[in-house]
Design a binder for these strands. Structure first.
Ligand code: SF4
Ligand code: SF4
Lengths: 133, 133
DNA sequence: ATATCACGGACTCTTGATATCCTTAATAAA
DNA sequence: TTTATTAAGGATATCAAGAGTCCGTGATAT
């Protein structure tokens, strides 16, 4: 069990977009070169992020992506959720009434999610930015 | 990203073994029938659990499995670790010095692990047993 | 009109999980 | 000693999801 590479790419992309000046657009070309991967593939990931409302896209010449106007505080969980989906890590097909095993697994997952939800990308972005100076 | 079915099977098997009287052996046949899966496949899982020291096996006629003598307090994390391995959920191949992203992801995973480590199988087993009455 | 861009369908390739088959070795009972 | 029973493990087949590419469509600025 492992997080997909797409999640990693998505996180890096979001951090990069967040560090851009307001309303400026970044194309998939630039984002792909930065991470040394193909634009076509990254495009799929960006579409997922857009569908989740984390970023906004503008088609056509001089188009590109920028972070969503309505979502200022984006957490790690938001990004992971957009890429990995919202299915539970432990997914028993039977679902016995009040199953104790599921209860434990779900609680554990909740603990992880709660941590991921409390960490905002903006904080990581600022930290990365200050280190580069 | 999802836990493998093998982890589910392993948890059920462990709960069943823990509810057995001391030193009594249970064969893979019985364990497989209980969960409606093939004995050969479950055998692989049991071998992993044995390698991790959670159960002990006795070959030959009248042989079978029992929970380890030396491991009385087995947690959910022990079982999951035995099946899924010990690799980190978020595994970036680059590992930049003091990476903030990894730090967040690892901390979140730790929170999940800590919960899984605090829950013992024996408690779940007792709960399941009392419900059947 | 044309160049530039995002979007999405279809496709291939790789990897890991799932599952089976068959052989070997150990043990108890006959 | 022989036989039945049982775990262990290698080899193999199957399947699903992830990773990645190719190409056509539509929107937009110049
Ligand atoms: S006991 Fe819980 S985990 Fe096990 S089969 Fe029932 S619902 Fe699934
Ligand atoms: S910044 Fe962190 S997650 Fe990103 S490539 Fe470097 S080590 Fe990996």
């Amino acid at each position: 069990m492992k997080y997909s590479n797409a999640t990693n790419y998505a996180l890096h992309t979001m951090v990069h977009l967040i560090l851009q000046p307001r309303e400026s657009l970044v194309g998939v070309q630039e984002l792909a070169e930065m991470q040394h991967l193909s634009p076509t593939y990254l495009s799929k990931i960006l579409t997922k992020l857009a569908k989740a409302g984390l970023i906004e896209s503008t088609p056509g010449a001089k188009g590109g992506y920028k972070v969503s106007r309505t979502k200022h505080e984006i957490s790690f969980l938001d990004v992971i959720h957009a890429i990995e989906g919202d299915t539970s890590l432990f997914d028993c097909s039977i679902h016995h009434e009040g199953c104790a095993i599921e209860k434990v697994m779900w609680q554990a997952e909740e603990n992880m999610k709660s941590e991921l939800n409390s960490k905002l990308l903006i904080d990581i972005a600022k930290e990365a930015e200050s280190k580069q100076k």
